[in-house]
Design a protein around this nucleic acid. Structure first.
Lengths: 120, 120
DNA sequence: ACAGCTACCTTGCATCGCAAAGTAGCTTGT
DNA sequence: ACAAGCTACTTTGCGATGCAAGGTAGCTGT
């Protein structure tokens, strides 16, 4: 599996919650939107996540007629979904910093003082 | 499974490569170091990854005597490992920006201009 | 001798991204 | 009217991953 796919694991769900929190949107448009944001995804990833989020009552879906083409299922965040999004944001912020620090090419010394775990 | 665990998927491998690229280190110390950096992991995650990275020839391990306690297996990055790390860094940088943008609480309008995909 | 720490390894489970395939409505060209 | 192509949602099965749990074994302090 690709490096990108692995990186996406667990991140995608948060991204979808974030998008839906900003605007009511349907699955197909969501896919295109994420792609436009350079978050490459396939429908095979999106729809299962939407179904799961619905089952967990983080979002609710509502079928609406389309002005052109097949009907669309629009999703909206529930209160529980807002909570989950905040949770995710917290975890993302907590993870981003340390990983960024590790990924900086300038190796060797970094600012963190080690605790004395692991010493001899 | 926890939100944090899901977020870690695919990120951990890159983090481990990054740490090893900066210093030769053994598994147990690696675990402690990541924890000190607030990247919470268990040995059950670390060791399987180290074995896999070794099998893929991204790192090489060498048993050395410990001045106190059981012997330690020190890992070093191979050239192939350096390449993989750079690959990972690329993907991380590409992903971080868009996700950060999504996670910013200030919802609604963002800077990206949509392409005309998905229009009616 | 015994408990506790250090250090490594393995098994089994739940989760997740996604390719692939299926279903069906609508639009456009001929 | 018919075919082809786009839109839109759904399901199945696979491979990859984090991790709890359990196992082995060496060293240290009491």
């Amino acid at each position: 599996m690709s490096v990108r796919s692995q990186l996406l694991k667990g991140i995608l769900e948060g991204c979808i919650l974030a998008v839906i929190s900003k605007e009511t949107i349907y699955g197909y448009e969501l896919t295109m939107k994420l792609r436009d944001m350079r978050i490459e995804v396939s429908e095979g990833s999106i729809y299962p996540i939407l179904l799961r989020l619905q089952k967990e009552q983080l979002i609710v879906g509502e079928m609406r007629e389309s002005p052109s083409g097949p009907n669309r299922k629009y999703y909206t965040l529930t209160d529980k979904g807002e909570e989950a999004l905040q949770q995710f944001r917290m975890h993302w912020d907590a993870l981003k910093g340390p990983v960024d620090e590790l990924m900086q090419k300038g190796g060797g010394a970094h600012a963190h003082q080690r605790s004395d775990r692991g010493k001899q």
